[in-house]
Amino acid sequence: MVVQGLRKVTVGQNGVGSFILQCKRLDFHYCDWMGSSKGMNSFIANSLQKFAAAHPQIEINVSPRPRKHPVIIGHYINGREKAVCVRNLQKEQILKKAELLRDASGEKLKKVTKPVTSIKESVRGVWSPYHGGPLTV
């Protein structure tokens, strides 16, 4: 055997070739009785249909949660979920929260310190002390 091949797997780069929205499911929970759900009920009655039609890639579940504050729960492709309590919010504010959950990646929030992260090698290469002419002081 001259040269052997090592087995690896390719690494996905979401957005290269195709983009998959990371939010796969949104659960809207409301209560018919409590005042904190007023905005949520109005959102479900008026805006949710439009929101759902604009995002066919998200599965939307609406279910009652009696005697509890209204909540939106986003489920993500990486298996995590993110819940936002929307008590006493207006329907426009709830739409903003739904958009926030739609745009989230599902990852834990972390501080991004580097402007660029890449899995590809640097085009310019790494500086080497052994190349180039000797340094004259």
Partner: peptide, 22 residues
């Protein structure tokens, strides 16, 4: 879009036994 667009560094798949001879 889903299979060929993924990243693979093909140069990391080689394993040589006797590179000088080869």
């Amino acid at each position: 879009r889903h299979i060929l667009s993924r990243h693979l560094d093909i140069s990391s798949l080689f394993q040589f036994k006797t590179p000088e001879r080869e």
